[in-house]
């Protein structure tokens, strides 16, 4: 056929110039153009209702496949907390000098769970929803965002339990507890940034999807979920300054410290932690959003 069947009379072949001229005359829009950054932000805002509907859909879809349903979002972290306590509190003993190890461990664990879920789910959000990309038009950044939002909502019961655990383990309620939800918001913003960033990377180079579980595991073990990073550094003697800085100030370690400082008496709230965490939140969110936006128009192609 390539040797040329008869062309119908209706569509004499236009030269690219003529096509462009025709499109301009009648105000047609070029497809696949990445919108400007501001226009993109406006577009996301215009789709905010869709964003909630999608996040809700994600949430419902992940919690409907079993009898206990939503109850699992409470049961799961509690069971996991018990397991971790048995392993790290009793069996291995990573308690170090921590007074309230139960609160320390559960805060670390329950804060890390949504961050890890954001990395795992967010990085695959675009690939997993490719059928949706191929049937509906919306700013694609909604995919990593809604994935993180729904997982965060699923973590809300666990955050409530944290307050309960803090009370039971005799942490005196104080005004700094009011910062607890703010700290969680910072956790959310960092998670969003990481999800958008990894979503673009994994979409561009599929093979990196295999590194995400490794990254998640690595972060779980170096971020001080079940041990104190400071104490570990002290035990290491005098590590190189950059090693110490890396371990203390990488985003996940800072987030865990941030949340612990709002609830635990032995970790007083420090401006430094908030400044670093805030910096990571703003930085990762902005970089993640811009990086994802720059790939708009390439998603769903394969």
């Amino acid at each position: 056929m390539s040797e040329g069947g008869p062309r119908g009379p209706l569509s004499p072949t236009l030269s690219p110039q003529e096509a462009e001229e025709l499109a301009r005359r009648y105000g047609l829009e070029l497809v696949g153009q990445r919108p400007g950054l501001l226009a993109y932000v406006r577009d996301v805002w215009r789709h905010r209702h869709l964003m909630w509907a999608m996040a809700k859909g994600d949430f419902v879809a992940t919690h409907q496949d079993n009898y206990l349903g939503l109850l699992w979002s409470i049961l799961n972290p509690i069971l996991l907390g018990v397991a971790y306590y048995l392993i790290f509190g009793v069996l291995i003993g990573t308690r170090g000098g921590i007074e309230n190890f139960v609160a320390f461990l559960t805060i670390g664990l329950f804060t890390y769970i949504p961050v890890a879920a954001a990395l795992t789910g967010g990085s695959k959000s675009v690939l997993r929803k490719s059928s949706m990309i191929r049937s509906l038009r919306f700013p694609r950044v909604l995919l990593p965002i809604t994935t993180v939002l729904s997982q965060f909502v699923a973590s809300l019961p666990a955050f409530m339990i944290l307050l309960l655990i803090a009370l039971i383990s005799k942490e005196p309620p104080s005004l700094t507890w009011l910062l607890f939800p703010v700290a969680l918001l910072v956790v959310l913003v960092v998670s969003l940034g990481m999800a958008m960033l990894t979503a673009r990377i994994v979409n561009a180079v599929r093979d990196t999807a295999n590194l995400v579980p490794l990254l998640v595991r690595l972060l779980r073990y170096v971020s001080g979920v079940f041990f104190s990073v400071d104490a570990a550094l002290a035990r290491m003697g005098d590590p190189e300054p950059w090693v110490a800085a890396l371990l203390q100030y990488q985003p996940v370690a800072v987030l865990l410290t941030l949340v612990r400082e709002t609830l635990m008496q032995e970790y007083p709230v420090r401006g430094e932690t908030w400044a670093v965490a805030g910096g990571w939140a703003v930085g990762l969110f902005v970089v993640g959003f811009v990086v994802f936006w720059r790939g708009e128009g390439t998603y769903g192609r394969s």
Binding site: A19, E20, L28, V31, G32, I133, T298, R301
Partner: peptide
């Protein structure tokens, strides 16, 4: 939904 990889398309 899926932008073309070559040429141009206006809507």
């Amino acid at each position: 939904l899926v932008p073309p990889t070559g040429g141009r398309l206006w809507l």
